[in-house]
Nucleic acid binder design. Sequence first.
DNA 1: GTCTATATCCCGATAGAC
DNA 2: GTCTATCGGGATATAGAC
Lengths: 193, 193
Amino acid sequence: MTAAPSRREEILTVAAALFARQGIANTTVRDIGEEAGILSGSLYHHFTSKEEMVEEIIRAALDPDIELDMALAQQDVDPVQAVRELIERALRFSDAHPDVAAIIADGRRELWTTERFAFLRSRFGTIKTVWTSVLERGVSQGVFRADLDPDLVYKAAMGAISATPNWYRPHGPQPIEAVIEQFNALVLGGILR
Amino acid sequence: MTAAPSRREEILTVAAALFARQGIANTTVRDIGEEAGILSGSLYHHFTSKEEMVEEIIRAALDPDIELDMALAQQDVDPVQAVRELIERALRFSDAHPDVAAIIADGRRELWTTERFAFLRSRFGTIKTVWTSVLERGVSQGVFRADLDPDLVYKAAMGAISATPNWYRPHGPQPIEAVIEQFNALVLGGILR
DNA sequence: GTCTATATCCCGATAGAC
DNA sequence: GTCTATCGGGATATAGAC
C-alpha cells in the first residue's frame, strides 16, 4: 500500500544511486537528468540546487530513528548488550540504506566541511558519545578490559563499519545477520576482559 | 646528509599535502601552484598532468617495501605473530606517510576505477591475500576461532586501519606504538580461540 | 624554468517558450 | 512540468615570449 512515489522522489532515488556509485562531485546534474529521463535544466523545477538533493537524500534516511540514538547511553543496560545493539543498529543502517551509507562514508571530507551538512557532524557526535559512554561504563564495571581506550575503540569500530558499503551488498549472498554476528564476536572478543 | 630536494620533489610535497587535506578532485593545479610559489601553467614544465603528480606521490611511498609484503604469507611463522606484524606494518605506513595514506583512503573510488592506478588494486589484492592466508592458517592450526570468516575479518581490520588518517596525527599526543598496541589487543582478542 | 595569455571544455544554474 | 537555449565561471592544459 505504499503511495506511488512522486516525481521528486523518483529523481532522488536515481540521484542517490548515482551519488553512491560515482561520488557526489563526479555526478553531474546532466547525469541525473539522463538517468531520470529529464533534462538537467528541468531538475531545477524540483530542486534549487544539487546540494539540496544530497541533503534531502541523507535526511530522509537519517531522520526516522533519531530518537533511538540516545536510548542506550546513560541507562543501566548491560554494556555488553549495549555494544551488541550499537553494532547491529549501525550495520542494519548500511543494509537498509546502502546508497546513503556509501554517500556519507565516501563524501565524508566534502560533507563534513560544508556548512549545510553540519547536522551530520552533530549527529555523529551524538553517536560517538553514546559509544564511548557505554564503553566507559563497561570498563568501570570491570566487564571490559581496563587498559581499553574507549575513544580509539570507537574509531576502530566505526572505521570498520563505515567501510562496509565498499563490500557489503544487501540481498547478496551474505545475509546482514551473518555480518552482525561476525562483528559482534570480533568487537566483543576484542574488548571483553 | 639528505640531498637537497629537487624542484620537482618540492612541488610533489606541497601537492601531496593539499591532496590529503582537500581531496584530489577538489585541489586545483592553481592551488598547487600558489602553495609552491609558481604559476599553474609552469607546473606543466615538470609534469604532464595532475594525474601524473598523484601517481608519482603514491608510488614514491609504496614502492620501497613492495618486497616485504609477501614475506609473512606462506611461511611457517606463528599466525599470531604474523597478524601482529601485518597490523604494525599497516599502521606504521600511516605514521610514515600520512598524506599518502589519506589520499589512498579518501580517493579510493576515484583511484580504483582509473586505469592508471590499476597497480593500486593489484597491490592491495596482494595484501589481502597475505592477510587471509595468515588467518586461514591460524584457524586450521586451532589458534584462531573456527567460526571466523577470514575475508570479513580482513575487511573489518583494513576498514579500521584505513580510517586512521581521519584522526591519527604523526608526532601528535598519541605515539603510534600506543595505537599499534590497542589495535593488536583489539584484533587478536577478537579472533583468538 | 617561469610567466603571460589563452584555448578548450564541462560544470551548475537560469530564463522563457510551450 | 518539461524543453530550448544559454550564461557565467572555473577547471586542465597549451603556446610562445622571456
